[in-house]
Design a protein around this nucleic acid. Structure first.
Lengths: 407, 407
DNA sequence: ATCTATTTGTTGTCTAGGGCAACATAATCG
DNA sequence: CGATTATGTTGCCCTAGACAACAAATAGAT
């Protein structure tokens, strides 16, 4: 292996030729429109530094390709000719798939982040991959037939509650599903004829928060999620998702922070996930099942001594996890999602104090710790985001497909 | 605060205009030449995808600016006209400064990574910042007078064994020096008239390993360093150093992994640094002082039961730290430096087994764990690297200074 | 209502910079 | 020594963004 060429070859992807420049600028604009939902042309010019005429040209090209739309009524703010407003096209969709412990959910998500046509099928525990693919095929086909025939499909993004090799589109290990190595992307592509992108649920949710939720405007984010299946995470570094070599990065829940022998879902002892369990809260509250909002209410209402003690213990653990992340990543903001946001509400003072105590002087000073924002649609938006990624990166070269299948 | 504009404004720095394209390509080539030390024009063309004629043009511009040199005797490899070899200029230097517990070291480092004119002054424990600045001034001035008068100076890069705010060039906290908040960059600039860049020692060493050492060719690296002053680290994500919001990122030594109450140098309990001390090895070996090579020899020779036990304990701790990093970053390679490389030599089998045991299936599979390569000059090379950063990013716009001071 | 100042969109022209083809050059190979 | 091959060089082309002039659409002043 020529280890001299390796890292340098990667560099040229940034764009060396004039055509790359065009691609880059189209991508830049489409991303801005996408994330802002609506934005004026003059704002686009100001933010990119590009000339008005160039913006006109680029916007026209994106418009021709059906990726954006210009709103008729111009913006009436301040002196001067009002600027045209640009918005994401309402014709472009991606299918977002969430595979969770015992159900598969599918939705169509528009380029502007609007979620339409939600479907859900209960698969039962430990479904076979083939069964899941079949469900996905059915739901996608169904939704596809409901979409306007002028629509354009970017592809399918699938959220996996486990380890995913993003490069080859294979699932590596999902303990909660009982899956080992599964070539899921190619299976779903074969079934639907659409390009498929897989992503870890933590990474996906984090991306959604970054683009449309509590992480908007930040470029260095640590996202920690607590669900029934364990503790997941995602990290944004310099605006980009932390992926690692194969896409396994960001497993904050499996960070070992204690000498405890208690094991997490992956069999690792003393990790955040091993020590911080949603079930423990449910047990103390004598709840069989509850979503996060019910859990939040129950916690805020009850406050029995046993609960208080548990919450203190959980907050202390979460505090250590946050402090470690702060020392390692020096982020602008730490977002807490799922039942971790319940802990935040239960005693934010103790949580912040704890997180600060373990952080180094420099890094802990400016970091903001807050709850995540996006609720039920979070995973859909994030999953669509990874399906849109190719389109957003190269608006001119990415091929969109019609809603009905040809062949 | 307009949180909509924030992240988007950052995006345009990547390069939107045609001039940015030129800057980008010049930077790309200079970086390639810099890291390869010598490289042929045809390789440059192949790796960047740029046309031969464009490479000619760009190389000519870099040559005119005195940043590179073309080697006369052409490369005689294979059929066809031999390609011109390009190398970094031997006229361009940066001053590398290492501030450590009781000494200051300064060297001039060439753009090709050659270290010349080393100097060292013992400052004693807990020197005042003003004293250190004075030493730096003296040494830099001295070296400056020794350099060829055709030389060009890029600036000063300073390695700090503590927390550094890279954005404003201030030191935040260095417990081993007894420093709190120090505006070091501006002080040294005032004393020398040269632009100054500060960096954390772990980050700097990691950058050096990435560019010229054991990390060459990898784009996702975790670097862990063990020294007398504690455990430091650095992380490379997608070829770029992990910096965080203010440059505090990468403090792997202060990651808490145990319930232990033992505190590290920053007063944090149960961290890697708290549990993994070089002194402990020295104590067991009854050594007062030893550099890493002496330590390595002593460890490999002795193997007393007490030492074995200590090493096992240390390896177990290091294994947890590595596993955590693997789960969080999914790197291609983990580099161990300082006395941690001694642990690797003492029992690499146990270390690898330990690191694997704590890693998740996907991430741990392909990761390589190895010793760092660069020795005595490591910090110099890395410190020079941060001084060269501006030049490498914008070869045409960065102003180089003559060796002698004018005024 | 009308005029002015201000901001934005549009149009045509300019230009920088990378691509390309043709040719020159310098090596290896038969 | 010619054929082949890879590379450097030269001149021309083309694309994409900059720029200037003008048109359009608003707010505010009179």
């Amino acid at each position: 292996m020529n280890d001299r060429q390796q890292p340098l070859l990667r560099a040229n992807k940034i764009g060396t030729s004039r055509e790359d420049l065009r691609v880059h600028n189209l991508s830049l604009l489409l991303n801005m429109v996408h994330k802002s939902v609506v934005i004026s042309r003059s704002d686009l010019a100001a933010m990119t530094g590009l000339n008005r005429s160039t913006i006109s040209d680029l916007v026209a090209e994106l418009n021709e390709r059906g990726l954006i739309a210009e709103i008729e009524k111009p913006q009436a703010s301040g002196v001067g000719r009002p600027s045209h407003l640009v918005t994401s096209s309402n014709r472009v969709f991606a299918f977002a798939v969430e595979i969770s412990t015992y159900a598969v959910r599918v939705a169509a998500v528009g380029l502007s982040g609007n979620v339409v046509e939600r479907r859900r099928v209960v698969t039962g525990m430990f479904p076979r991959p083939e069964a899941v693919v079949s469900v996905i095929k059915t739901l996608v086909t169904d939704i596809r037939s409901k979409l306007d025939k002028n629509s354009l499909i970017a592809g399918i993004g699938i959220s996996i509650p486990g380890q995913v090799n993003e490069q080859d589109g294979s699932v590596r290990l999902v303990t909660t599903l009982g899956w080992g190595e599964v070539e899921l992307a190619s299976m779903v592509t074969a079934a639907t004829g659409l390009p498929v992108t897989l992503g870890n649920d933590g990474t996906i949710s984090c991306a959604a928060e970054r683009d449309f939720g509590a992480g908007k405007g930040f470029s260095d984010i640590v996202y920690i999620f607590g669900g029934a299946g364990g503790i997941g995470g995602g990290v944004v570094v310099g605006g980009e998702m932390l992926r690692g070599t194969s896409g396994f990065a960001g497993e904050l829940g499996h960070m070992r922070i204690s000498d405890s022998r208690v094991e997490d879902n992956a069999g690792l002892p003393g990790t955040v996930e091993a020590l911080l369990k949603r079930e423990d809260l449910l047990d103390v509250l004598r709840l069989d099942d509850a979503d996060d909002e019910e859990l939040r209410l129950a916690v805020l209402r009850s406050r029995s001594p046993r609960l208080n003690k548990l919450i203190e213990r959980q907050i202390d653990i979460l505090g250590v996890a946050i402090a470690n992340c702060v020392n390692i990543f020096n982020p602008e903001v730490v977002l807490l999602a799922g039942f971790l946001s319940v802990l935040f509400d239960a005693d934010d003072y103790r949580l912040l104090a704890n997180a600060r105590a373990g952080g180094l002087a420099g890094a802990r000073e400016r970091v903001v710790i807050r709850k995540a924002e996006l609720g039920a649609n979070l995973v859909f938006v994030g999953a669509a985001e990874i399906a849109f990624a190719g389109l957003l990166a190269d608006p001119a070269g990415f091929e969109l497909l019609p809603p009905k299948k040809f062949k």
